[in-house]
Every structure is written in structure tokens, then in C-alpha cells.
């Protein structure tokens, strides 16, 4: 198993390494021109909004509101980004820092608690396991909207309003992380290894740390990436509890930018660019793992 792809080696790219296949069957997997056209259109539609974001973010606002719309980038990108960074209402630098802090904390906690609980559900026997697992599955279905009012009152009582714990603590561990780690642990951690460790007198915690953690590392990386992306993009709940424009997450900065300077599209788009950039870097560096994780999750469930 490589660290780039989560998938066990059972599934290979189609037809690879299968010499001696009949010509006809071989032809089955070749791409027709139609396939290529479809893919190219798909890629174009998928990437165009990113391109357009750069176009608008690199032009003056007058050009952004002109007719016909502009299609080539201009030279104002640095200037627009500077304007966003200097913007006293959006506080986007604070927003970025807060988002890193919040998403990072949640990611670490999710991977840690998720692998711990996933290991327990996959490999340990205890009473009420199935019932507890069912609760975890059901919890994934509950929308945050359901309890938004009581949650708000709770945050107020804890004096967490407008602070980062209000958008961090409730999300430290979710059902998805546990479920994903359980699925992976079930196949990736051999029972024999656990038994052997027990015989050697390891405590459950030591088994987790020395046997399970190394085996779960690839899945943990993917869970971490997916969690970070999801948390970075949170909008609804921060929108409700972070009322102080001086202390936002980056998505709330964007919203402030939009309400305060809505006619200034070049500045707004420069803001979306800044807000998306960290995840773009993550995607460039770890895109293969992310895609592997998505595909892996699909086969599991």
C-alpha cells in the first residue's frame, strides 16, 4: 500500500498489466473522441470559475462591471489584494489566522478522537457497541439548524460568543471521522497483531499508539485533509455566533466584504481568492490523497 493512494492494491487501472487480451476487449476501454470532448468540456466548466475569479480579481472595478464582461486578467491583482488586506471592515488577516487555528485544532482533534473511537468500534468488544454506533450514524443526519437557538443560548451562557471556542468545541469530533476510521481500521489492522500485543502485556492505549496508529496513518491523513477543508469552509454556524466583525473566520470576513463593499466586485473577488488560496495549496500538494480518500470512502460505504 502506498501512502499516496488509500486503495488496497486489488483495484488497478483498467486493463493495465493484462497482456494477451483479445483485441476486441482491449478496444472496450479505449477513449472515443466523444469521451475526450466530454472530459474537456467537464474540465473547462470545472475550472472556468476559478479562472474568472482571477480575471475579476486582477481588474479594476469598472472593468468588472462592464459589458461585455472581461475575459483576460488585468494587472491590478496585487493592488486589489492589498486593498482587501487593508480593509478595516473585513479583517481578513485575523480571519485567516482564526480559520487556521480553528480548522487546525478541529483537524487534530478529529483525527485523534476519530482514530481512537474508530479503533474501539472496529477492534474492541464492548457492550452496547452496535447501539452506540447507530447513534453515531444517526448523529450525522442532524442538521445544525435544528438546535441553532438553544446552541446560541448555550454559547452565551458559556460566554463563548464572538470567540473561537464557539466554532471549535462543538465540532471537535463528528460521526463522520469515527465512521471513516472504523471502516479503515477494520481491514487495515490485523487482529493477530492486536492479540500478539495483548499477549505481550500491552495496555489498550499502548496497542492504539504502537499498533493501530501506524496502520491508520494513510486514512488519518485523508481524514485530516477532508476535515480541514470542511472546517475551513464552514459558514452557517460562524455566521450565527461570530457577531464581532473584528474577530471573524475567513468566510465571515468574505461576508463582511460582501455586505460592506458589495459594489466593489474586484475587491470581493480578490477576497474570495485569498480565502480559497490556502485550500488550493493543500489541494496542489495533497490532491492525490484527497481524491484517493474520496474514492476509498465510496467503496467502503
Amino acid at each position: 500500500m502506498t501512502s499516496t493512494m488509500l486503495r488496497p492494491p486489488a483495484v488497478r487501472p483498467p486493463a493495465a498489466g493484462r497482456p494477451g487480451l483479445r483485441h476486441r476487449a482491449e478496444r472496450l476501454w479505449t477513449a472515443s473522441p466523444l469521451t475526450w470532448i466530454g472530459l474537456v468540456i467537464g474540465v473547462f466548466l470545472s475550472l472556468f470559475p476559478f479562472y474568472w475569479m482571477i480575471v475579476i480579481a486582477s481588474r479594476t472595478n469598472d472593468a468588472a462591471n462592464s459589458w461585455p464582461p472581461p475575459f483576460l486578467p488585468g494587472g491590478k491583482l496585487g493592488e486589489n489584494i492589498q486593498r482587501v488586506l487593508d480593509n478595516g471592515d473585513a479583517n481578513i488577516i485575523t480571519g485567516l489566522a482564526n480559520s487556521f487555528l480553528v480548522s487546525g485544532t478541529i483537524t487534530v482533534a478529529t483525527v485523534f478522537f476519530g482514530s481512537l473511537a474508530g479503533f474501539a468500534f472496529a477492534k474492541l468488544r464492548f457492550r452496547g457497541k452496535n447501539a452506540l454506533l447507530l447513534i453515531i450514524l444517526a448523529s450525522m443526519m442532524i442538521p445544525i439548524q435544528l438546535g441553532v437557538l438553544p446552541l446560541y443560548i448555550l454559547m452565551a451562557k458559556l460566554e463563548w460568543l464572538n470567540t473561537m471556542p464557539s466554532v471549535t468545541v462543538p465540532f471537535l469530533i463528528g460521526g463522520f471521522g469515527i465512521f471513516m476510521m472504523r471502516q479503515y481500521a477494520e481491514q487495515a489492522v490485523p487482529n493477530e497483531l492486536i492479540e500478539a500485543a495483548r499477549v505481550d502485556g500491552c495496555s489498550t492505549w499502548r496497542i492504539y499508539w504502537h499498533v493501530v496508529v501506524p496502520a491508520l496513518r494513510p486514512a488519518a491523513a485523508v481524514l485530516g485533509l477532508l476535515t480541514f477543508m470542511e472546517q475551513w469552509n464552514q459558514f452557517f454556524w460562524p455566521f450565527v455566533v461570530l457577531a464581532d466583525p473584528a474577530n471573524p473566520t475567513v468566510q465571515i470576513s468574505l461576508r463582511s466584504l460582501n455586505t460592506a463593499y458589495f459594489a466593489d466586485n474586484s475587491q470581493i473577488f480578490a477576497g474570495t481568492l485569498i480565502a480559497t488560496l490556502p485550500l488550493f495549496v493543500v489541494f496542489v500538494l495533497f490532491g492525490r490523497q484527497i481524491i484517493g480518500g474520496i474514492m476509498e470512502g465510496a467503496v467502503k460505504s
Binding site: N98, L101, V102, G104, N162, T163, M164, P165, T168, V169
Partner: peptide, 9 residues
């Protein structure tokens, strides 16, 4: 980490 978060408030 949490504590630094609080400090932003």
C-alpha cells in the same frame, strides 16, 4: 490552542 483562541475574543 483553545486558550489562544479565547485570547482573540
Amino acid at each position: 490552542v483553545l486558550a489562544t483562541g479565547t485570547a482573540c475574543g
